[in-house]
């Protein structure tokens, strides 16, 4: 409980308050829970892999180009988010803002492409109710997309707080935690790219 402050110049701000330290560890535990959550979705998707019923197969609809653009945007945003934290640790508020805003813009671009992809699929006759396979697809990719949306909104709110209150042990802990979340979304996307798209194309090809 106590605000046992560590006044060491080398300690990053986010680790300086007791609350900050507890929150960061708590968030890591939460990410563990998120891994279990997404694993269950992956398990579902993979079990239902061949169950396309009367609907189209993924091989017919998946488009590599869009997926690659999405992957590139999210991967880059994870990198820029890392730079933003690097700037924060240098106590450079301006740098933090610039790189975080780039991150959010890339995230929004990713989301735009994903929505476009979903709309295309629906037009081509694959919606959540088409078959078990497409239910699995839309829910796993959609859950990730929902996470990205929440991430954008959350980071925006935290940046407002930083703008108002400056970089304090409290606000920087929040920024750091939101960055963990953002990187984690990229980790999940790596597996979506591999298990949903690549695997979907490989298995339905053969």
């Amino acid at each position: 409980m106590a605000h046992a402050e560590v006044h060491d110049h080398n300690t990053p701000l986010e680790y300086q308050s007791e609350t900050g330290r507890l929150n960061i560890l708590g968030f890591w535990v939460f990410l563990g829970a998120e891994i279990a959550l997404f694993s269950t979705l992956f398990a579902t998707y993979l079990v239902l892999m061949y169950r396309t019923g009367d609907g189209p197969t993924p091989h017919e609809l998946f488009e590599l180009k869009g997926v690659l653009i999405e992957t590139f945007l999210l991967l880059t945003s994870s990198f820029t988010c890392g730079i933003a934290i690097h700037e924060m640790r240098r106590r450079n508020r301006k740098g933090l803002f610039i790189w975080m805003i780039i991150t959010l813009a890339l995230g929004a671009g990713f989301l735009g492409y994903e929505i476009y992809e979903f709309v295309t699929y629906v037009h081509e006759g694959a919606a959540i109710g088409t078959s078990a396979f497409w239910s699995g697809f839309f829910v796993i990719v959609g859950t990730h997309g929902l996470h990205v949306t929440m991430g954008i909104a959350w980071i925006t709110l935290i940046l407002i707080q930083v703008a108002r209150r400056g970089l304090t042990p409290q606000t920087s802990a929040k920024v750091f935690i939101s960055s963990l979340y953002w990187h984690f979304l990229d980790v999940v996307w790596i597996f979506i790219f591999t298990a949903v798209y690549l695997t979907g194309m490989v298995l339905h090809n053969g």
Partner: peptide
């Protein structure tokens, strides 16, 4: 999702399991 939005995860129709 199955019950409210017509998904087919566990249903007998739509190749659910």
């Amino acid at each position: 999702f199955d019950r409210l939005f017509g998904a087919h995860f566990f249903t007998l129709q739509g190749a659910g399991m």
